[in-house]
């Protein structure tokens, strides 16, 4: 059974249609790349999955549970949406680290706040917080940032900041990790270190959705590629097939424009 099932998602901003009849599914342990030009609706789609935007119609199911159904207002209650968001992790294009906290605190903050809801929090406060800290350090270690745990975001390079953001998203163990153009705000030198981290996550079979402009990366890392244009899915399938031998004219045009640059 697919871990994620998206059906007939539609989204308007005023009179403009941004997403139209988007349907796809994702298996556990697979990576999905979404490619397409700016304004094609890729980011909006990710934002819908993370409940930052509310689709006008369609359903989103994770592990068979319907998280969102536009026709059923009961699935859109504020306090439940908060819980549902935890199925998804999100890495933003502009990192969005919290500037007033150290790298480690950025990673652990959300988990510390969530742990306050545990019934045994008062009794085991110290042990729980120490465990979260240890886990945070371990995650930063995996990102190659052990020596940066106590640095503030402005003391880190863009690549390091984005790796902290990835650790922050991983700290809550989401079912599906979403990347919204994770390297677009980085200069080419720093892109590599972030892509390396994402690649190793793919090797560890992390379920991921990656919106990216790095075609070679999308082809090598993803198990599935979606090409979007004008708010619709134009082509979808095996990465080598879509990127190297596209069937649709629009995909071909997009990729050739890309090759030229």
């Amino acid at each position: 059974m697919a871990i994620l099932e998206v059906q007939h998602i539609e989204k308007h901003f005023g009179a403009t249609k941004v997403l139209e009849d988007i349907s796809f599914s994702l298996e556990k342990g697979q990576a999905l790349s979404i490619i397409g030009s700016s304004g094609s609706g890729k980011t909006t789609l990710l934002r819908c999955l993370n409940f930052l935007e509310t689709p006008d119609s369609g359903t989103i199911c994770v592990q068979g549970e319907t998280l969102f159904d536009a026709a059923d207002p009961a699935t859109q209650r504020e306090n439940e949406v908060r819980r549902k968001r935890l199925h998804f992790g999100m890495v933003f294009q502009s990192f969005n680290l919290f500037p007033q906290y150290t790298a480690l605190k950025n990673v652990t903050l959300a988990k510390e706040l969530l742990s306050q809801e545990r019934p045994d929090f008062k009794a085991n406060k110290k042990a729980i917080l120490e465990e979260i800290q240890a886990e945070g350090r371990e995650l930063l270690g995996k990102m190659g940032l052990s020596d940066r745990a106590n640095h503030y975001p402005h003391q880190l390079s863009g690549g390091q900041q984005q790796r902290v953001a990835i650790a922050r998203a991983l700290a809550l163990h989401p079912d599906i990790l979403c990347f919204d153009e994770p390297t677009s705000a980085l200069d080419p030198e720093l892109t590599g270190e972030v892509l390396k981290v994402i690649r190793s996550l793919a090797e560890q079979r992390t379920t991921m959705i990656i919106v990216t402009h790095e075609m070679a990366f999308a082809r090598d890392v993803a198990d599935q590629v979606i090409f979007m244009d004008g708010g619709v899915i134009v082509e979808q399938g095996d990465p080598h097939q879509v990127i190297e031998h596209p069937r649709e004219e629009r995909t071909r045009q997009f990729l050739s424009r890309y090759a030229q640059n």
Binding site: F51, F88, G89, A110, L114, A169, L172
Partner: peptide, 29 residues
């Protein structure tokens, strides 16, 4: 920046947690 609030939202924080732990200090500054 809106991104700060959104980062808190996707990490499952409540509105008041976002205000107290993220927005407040940045606002004071």
């Amino acid at each position: 920046p809106t991104g700060q609030r959104e980062a808190g939202q996707v990490l499952g924080m409540t509105k008041s947690q976002i205000f107290r732990h993220i927005t407040l200090v940045q606002m004071i500054k």
